[in-house]
Design a protein around this nucleic acid. Structure first.
Lengths: 208, 208
DNA sequence: TACTGTGAACCTATTCACAGCA
DNA sequence: TGCTGTGAATAGGTTCACAGTA
């Protein structure tokens, strides 16, 4: 991923590629902008930021634009799969063992962890499950870069710290805890409770 | 929630209240800022924005500040529980049936829906489960304002549209689909695949 | 005509810098 | 001294407005 592109733009580029992957034919910045909830000119700026300028007066060729995005975005969509793990195999964590969720996502789950050894023995999945004590060893050996955190709230902080110490690159946090991680670790919060609260606080945005 | 407060500030205020709920004694803006990953002055601006100015040279009294936030933020933390539902009761959606997840969150789940009637009959929970066909009726009758969307990707768009038509106020989206909802519907995306991709795209933020 | 591409203007959010105070 | 409270400065992101083009 090249530098000099703003964080919000990068996020929209990811979503844009995602949208285009389900489209065909041609599409205008106007259409994309309503899908993403912003102004069409912003979409055009985003597209310009990756150096793509093959738009015509009937919009962009979907596949041509998608390919430009794929060539530009990190190649998570290609063969070079990113390696991730799941930490915490309670009801929620176990739900992510479902094969197919990460199909074609560019990410493979290569390990699961839980502090409860029973779980790691009883549950089954296409990848191995380990006791949480082996977190550091396995992450290093398996060259895991990403983690999905779905432990109990009580464990979240200490596990997040251990993950950070393993030089993990990012955490998707499904616990309710506000994690403290170094700036080198990317973080996305996905806990239903936190997100409901954030929904709640969203100002009424008026009209459609 | 009063007007005139920026969206990012509101989000931080929610997280701030969350942090304070787990603290005691006194705390400085500096401490809070490292926890939230921003500058201390921003925290002080945020706090000033709700009209609180009881800080001293040893920081803020945790509970006093928390109470100010509670008095200011919408009262989801109090008795007046916000009513939410879960749509889609596959492995992921079913994980949210777990009692206790929404304990003390200010939200109660009052209904679950799935297009597979088997599931709504077999699964059990403290609240009733309905076939998806009854979505509109139940949401209206139960005065449900919020939805957690955990259907299959294929159903996501149409369900989201139906939810929007029910005048739902917000959706937490656990599907991979980029939803299109009117501006009146708040939206938070929480799909593991989408979030992993967004993590990936995050610029290396340098240092700790 | 209907769109893109893009510089400039605008607006919003964050940080800086410092006076005031326990 | 070490913190808050806050106006001013800066940075960042989005929208506007329009020239250029198939």
């Amino acid at each position: 991923m090249r530098e000099g592109i703003s964080e919000p733009t990068k996020r929209r580029l990811v979503l844009l590629e995602h949208l285009l992957s389900r489209m065909t034919g041609r599409v205008t910045s106007k259409t994309l902008s309503t899908l993403l909830g912003c102004k069409d000119s912003l979409i055009r700026h985003d597209i310009a930021s990756i150096g793509f300028s093959k738009g015509f007066s009937n919009g962009y060729d979907v596949k041509e634009l998608q390919n430009a995005l794929l060539g530009f975005l990190p190649n998570y969509v290609l063969d070079k799969k990113e390696r991730a793990c799941i930490v915490g195999l309670g009801r929620l964590g176990a739900a992510f063992l479902d094969e197919g969720i990460f199909e074609k996502s560019g990410f493979t789950i290569v390990a699961g962890f839980d502090s409860n050894v029973n779980r790691t023995e009883i549950l089954h999945s296409t990848f191995p499950l380990y006791p949480a004590s082996r977190l550091e060893t396995v992450i290093k050996a398996e060259r895991i870069d990403w983690a999905i955190l779905a432990t109990k709230n009580e464990e979240a902080l200490s596990i997040a710290e251990r993950l950070s110490n393993c030089r993990i690159r990012g955490i998707v946090n499904y616990t309710d805890v506000t994690l403290k991680v170094p700036k080198t670790v990317a973080l996305e919060n996905a806990s239903p409770v936190t997100l409901l609260k954030l929904l709640f606080v969203r100002g009424e945005n008026s009209s459609e």
